[in-house]
Simulated assay, not measured.
Amino acid sequence: MNTLDQDLPLVPAAEPAAAIRRNLKTKSTQLWKETLLGYFFLAPSLALFLVFLFYPLLQSLYLSVHETDPRGRVAGYVGFDNFIDIFTSAKFYKSLEVTGLFTLLTVPTGIALSLLLAALTHNRLRGMRVFQFIFSLPVVLSVSTSAVIWMMLYHPSVGMINYLLSLIGMQPVAWLTDPKWALLSVSVMTIWMNLGFTYIVLLSGLQNISDDMYDSAKIDGAGPFRTFVQVVMPLLSPTVFFVTIVSMINAFQSFGQINILTKGGPVDATNVLVYSIYQDAFINFRFGTGSAQALVLFTLILILTFVQFKAFERNVHYQ
């Protein structure tokens, strides 16, 4: 036997293959352990989703094709009759009209006002943090608290708003009991209530824009308005797009402030779709009709969100 054979003994070909198989098996086992560990930590959240999201969705699908008795118990299968009743009901189209008008009053106005306040306060000037705190304050208030505050402000005899009107010689306004003013009053309260969240998100987007962009625009001779329109808005478009989607969904799901302030009145002037669902399901105990309306509302929100992604995302600049 020569010296080479003594120093470097031949290794059977089977050993490297066996080692590769053992390594693959070890990595596969480790991957399974990591996956199971991930699901273990996700288990509480998944359980909450199952109980509070997926189960109600399945229950709504079941109830939407059944009718219920006055006590809310399932009385029989009716197929698509509940959906036919919805789409042939004038009340549904009235609620849909009110919901659309409420969305148009709250979403564009709320975003524009939040964007204006964010643009005015995102500079690192002395005292700006005080204004940032004030404009962010509504985010910490619940819907019920905000509604009670504005109910006091809208009070026809002792409310602050009518008092201020009396100081300039104007007659008091029945903000919540006059059909001409009720929806506008609820919309103003909703804009203020959502202002904190929208303002914080837009302010964060503005603060993430590099100062180099402003310096470059200034060197090119761009003024403040031109800089905001041609530089800031394209860079802020992903944030504005996100806020628009979220605000639209929230507007279609608004319930608490309407329940507290107007209860859908007067004369159904503020009877949005969600409150109509609440009336059918939990006041009239027509759970079949209420579930069918809930599914229609879900479909409308899904379609509107899809349309917004298709129509406006092409104008969103992520870089």
Score class of each variant (00 low, 15 high):
residue 245 I to A: 05
residue 40 F to I: 14
residue 112 A to I: 15
residue 103 T to I: 08
residue 9 P to D: 04
residue 312 F to Y: 06
residue 295 L to N: 06
residue 75 A to D: 13
residue 276 S to E: 15
residue 86 I to H: 04
residue 160 M to E: 05
residue 209 I to R: 02
residue 116 L to G: 07
residue 172 P to N: 08
residue 81 D to F: 01
residue 181 W to A: 03
residue 102 F to G: 02
residue 294 A to W: 01
residue 89 S to R: 14
residue 152 M to L: 07
residue 193 M to C: 02
residue 152 M to C: 03
residue 110 G to F: 11
residue 100 G to W: 02
residue 37 L to E: 12
residue 81 D to Q: 07
residue 248 M to R: 05
residue 232 V to L: 02
residue 317 H to V: 12
residue 278 Y to W: 05
residue 258 I to T: 07
residue 316 V to K: 08
residue 303 I to K: 00
residue 290 G to V: 05
residue 137 L to V: 13
residue 309 F to T: 11
residue 144 S to R: 03
residue 112 A to W: 08
residue 39 Y to L: 15
residue 84 I to R: 14
residue 119 A to Y: 13
residue 40 F to N: 08
residue 33 K to I: 15
residue 285 F to C: 01
residue 34 E to R: 15
residue 135 F to S: 06
residue 168 I to N: 03
residue 252 F to S: 05
residue 66 H to G: 10
residue 184 L to W: 12
residue 150 W to D: 00
residue 47 A to F: 03
residue 258 I to H: 04
residue 168 I to M: 06
residue 270 T to N: 11
residue 206 L to M: 05
residue 4 L to C: 03
residue 158 V to M: 15
residue 313 E to S: 11
residue 182 A to G: 09
residue 262 T to D: 09
residue 55 Y to D: 01
residue 102 F to Q: 05
residue 254 S to D: 07
residue 40 F to A: 15
residue 206 L to C: 07
residue 271 N to I: 05
residue 198 T to E: 07
residue 8 L to I: 10
residue 205 G to R: 00
residue 38 G to H: 02
residue 54 F to L: 14
residue 158 V to K: 13
residue 42 L to Q: 06
residue 239 T to G: 00
residue 285 F to V: 10
residue 300 L to H: 00
residue 61 L to T: 08
residue 78 V to M: 08
residue 303 I to L: 08
residue 273 L to R: 11
residue 296 V to M: 11
residue 89 S to I: 13
residue 100 G to P: 00
residue 125 L to W: 05
residue 228 F to A: 00
residue 149 I to E: 07
residue 263 K to H: 12
residue 12 P to I: 04
residue 236 L to S: 02
residue 280 D to F: 02
residue 213 M to T: 08
residue 289 T to G: 12
residue 172 P to M: 09
residue 26 T to A: 14
residue 152 M to P: 01
residue 18 A to Y: 03
residue 280 D to T: 06
residue 162 N to E: 10
residue 185 S to Y: 09
residue 166 S to C: 04
residue 154 Y to F: 13
residue 167 L to M: 12
residue 174 A to Y: 04
residue 67 E to C: 12
residue 297 L to Y: 06
residue 236 L to D: 01
residue 267 V to S: 13
residue 18 A to Q: 13
residue 252 F to M: 13
residue 13 A to F: 03
residue 277 I to W: 01
residue 172 P to E: 09
residue 168 I to D: 01
residue 247 S to A: 15
residue 262 T to G: 07
residue 131 F to A: 11
residue 80 F to D: 02
residue 164 L to N: 10
residue 50 L to N: 01
residue 318 Y to W: 06
residue 48 L to V: 12
residue 162 N to A: 07
residue 69 D to I: 15
residue 147 A to I: 06
residue 120 L to Y: 01
residue 16 P to G: 05
residue 302 L to F: 00
residue 173 V to P: 03
